[in-house]
Amino acid sequence: MKKYLCLGCGFSYDEALGLPEHGIAPGTRWADIPDNWVCPDCGTPKSGFEMVEIPYSSEARPA
């Protein structure tokens, strides 16, 4: 399970968590998200995300 960061604004997508509020179920692989999907916060295209290996802050509540 990988994490991706929007290079337009920093919004993060976590495959493990998905984005249920935006219709993407937990466990959805990045590759399975449509190519025309855009950042829900800033509209940056999917191609403008970068895979990151950065751990969560202990104070984060990513879900």
Partner: peptide, 9 residues
């Protein structure tokens, strides 16, 4: 710059 940790305060 990228952060050291995600979703920090």
């Amino acid at each position: 710059v990228l952060p050291g940790l995600l979703l920090a305060p």
